[in-house]
Amino acid sequence: MNLVLRIWRQASAEVEGRFEDYPVSGISTDYSFLEVLDRINEDLVSQNQEPVAYEMDCREGICGSCSLMINGTPHGPRPATTTCQLYMRHFHDGQTITVEPWLSRATPVIKDLVVDRSALDRIMQSAGYISVHTGEAPDANTIPVSKSRADKAFVAASCIGCGACIAACPNASAMLFVAAKVTHLSLLPQGEPERSHRVRAMVVAMDREGFGNCSNHYECAKACPKSIPVSLIARLNREFQHAGLLGHEYGGPIHHAAHEE
């Protein structure tokens, strides 16, 4: 295959970016999308030019590092697939493919295709956990959890935190991400004691980061490489309204820790 990749280049957050075209030839259909970028980068280095910065790590669709907007779609055209597991047989010979970073106010560009997704971690740090000291736990089988409930929690917990939902959303909303994280812990009996506080703290943290609102376009779920269902957003709404209107912990302070680097 011969292709042209039109890639967003931006030396740093402070300078303007632009698209540049990179023709690449002799690509086998068995190449993954990232291997095409690798080829382009090797060629660039051989010509003493700076390669395209982009993020990846595991290349097996689980670490959530890869993050490209390919022809306007996060993680490219195939549903339920991360960029690292996208193969070139889903493109056609001679195609020009546009590659952009996942831009939003809450996820600014660092360089080229690399964006800063630390906002997601700050949301998690606000309350995305169950407070249990090491050593406190009772025997694992003390509390039975129905299989259907555990399976539902697992579906929510399979979120890889890549941020495709935010990239796909016309409002750059992080609702699907937060919904997945809140649902995972709220469905399990172990997460029950902090349920009300957790959802409030995480929503407040989400708002602080400058993500948009959910306006029910459901683009997020279509882009999600792990097929997290959009019904979880309804669940998040319900959890939050319940906690905000009826939660007995209402009024309790929500602290935010300072973060370094």
Partner: peptide, 27 residues
């Protein structure tokens, strides 16, 4: 107000790879 927040959240509203009608449709 919600719409304003949304446009703030995504300053570069249109991706190069996205068609204009999708852009309008989403708004």
């Amino acid at each position: 107000a919600v719409t304003q927040e949304n446009s703030l959240a995504r300053p570069e509203s249109c991706h190069a790879g996205q068609s204009w009608y999708l852009h309008v449709y989403q708004r």
